[in-house]
């Protein structure tokens, strides 16, 4: 009897995740009927390779949404990082360089990416917190700036000719089945989980997102919280940029154009509140799986072109939002 109630409570508490898991299972079953090659190891590996880029961006955007803003500059940061790193690699680590130089440049690439991410994020955060520009506008204009810089660096064409061994090093599958992107994603998720759940930053972030005036009078440094959220977001995007550079072995200003929309949709699908104050790391990860399953599923469905996936995302997102609206409203009324 007692066990039953706890199970019921567990279901009630996590009903939103259960909806998502049910949606995921439905998509998987539908895919199994549509295509024979969906449930193969190669397909799952390629799905994992593709999803790490925008999954990282989605985690970052989740933080910004939670702080009451949004980050539209993620793709710009990723592409700019990729362009700068590509220029660096072409200049200092050509194909015939020694292994020592390659190792050093790999380390430099990672450090450079982190620095670029931190600088971009700080700039976004300063515009939002110190000047009080609405986050959407600020990140929209910095997205222009970063994408523009990427275009200037790549001169509007794609930069290729990156060291093959670098590409291999960053696209290796650990144990033969875990793409490096997924390892990075897991590390990032653990880091964010630690930051949000085990330090006061998570609580402060939600509070700033809900009521900045209250946090101001409670003595919380609103500006720093916002800057930190945007900094983490941009660093994650810069890391996604490194992964994109390695996966596509070239850099171009319009790679991943749709990622920022996709990442925002994932966050909302995962249960992060669009108006701030609520986040969910498992929800976001589930959202990434759902979106990737849809993308792969649509590309495998005979007779459907790749734009159909947009339709599926949109219908899914709107129906989840409306269902959730009625669910929470019922709860409020019951109280």
């Amino acid at each position: 009897m007692k066990e039953k109630t706890t199970f019921k409570n567990f279901v009630k508490k996590n009903s939103y995740y259960l909806y998502l898991i049910i949606a995921l299972i439905i998509i998987f079953i539908a895919m199994a009927f549509i295509s024979d090659s969906f449930f193969t190891v190669t397909n799952f590996i390629s799905m994992m390779e593709q999803m790490s880029d925008y999954a990282l961006m989605a985690l970052g955007i989740m933080l910004c949404l939670c702080a009451g803003g949004v980050d539209l500059s993620t793709v710009g940061v990723a592409n700019m990082t990729a362009a700068i790193l590509a220029t660096y690699l072409i200049r200092f680590a050509p194909d015939d360089c020694s292994t020592g130089i390659l190792v050093i440049s790999c380390i430099v690439v990672v450090i450079l990416a982190l620095i670029i991410g931190a600088v971009c994020g700080t700039f976004n955060g300063l515009l939002i917190s110190k000047l009080g520009i609405p986050p959407m506008l600020a990140t929209m204009s910095t997205n222009y700036l970063y994408t523009g810089l990427c275009m200037v660096i790549t001169k509007g064409v794609s930069l290729s000719g990156i060291n093959e061994r670098f590409v291999e090093a960053f696209t290796v599958n650990i144990f033969g089945f875990l793409p490096i992107g997924i390892v990075v994603l897991i590390l990032a998720a653990v880091f964010i989980w630690y930051e949000l759940k085990k330090t006061s930053f998570g609580v402060k972030l939600c509070m700033v997102g809900t009521n900045p005036t209250a946090t101001y009078f409670a003595g919380i440094n609103n500006d720093w919280i916002k800057i930190k959220a945007h900094m983490i977001s941009s660093i994650l995007s810069a890391v996604a940029g490194v992964l994109m550079l390695a996966r596509l072995s070239s850099s171009r200003a319009d790679y991943g154009k749709a990622y920022s929309t996709q990442a925002i949709l994932i966050c909302i699908l995962g249960g992060t509140a669009a108006i701030g104050g609520k986040f969910s790391i498992p929800g976001t990860i589930l959202g990434v799986f759902i979106v990737q399953a849809i993308t792969t599923g649509v590309s495998m469905t005979p007779g459907a072109n790749s734009y159909m996936k947009n339709l599926v995302y949109a219908v899914l997102l709107l129906s989840v939002m409306i269902l959730d609206y009625y669910r929470t409203n019922r709860k409020v009324k019951a109280k």
């Binding site: 929309t261 925002i264 949709l265 734009y307 159909m308 996936k309 947009n310 339709l311 599926v312 995302y313 949109a314 219908v315 997102l317 709107l318 939002m321």
Partner: peptide, 9 residues
């Protein structure tokens, strides 16, 4: 954002 994806779709 969602309806944009819907309309393109």
């Amino acid at each position: 954002l969602a309806t944009e994806a819907l309309f393109w779709g």
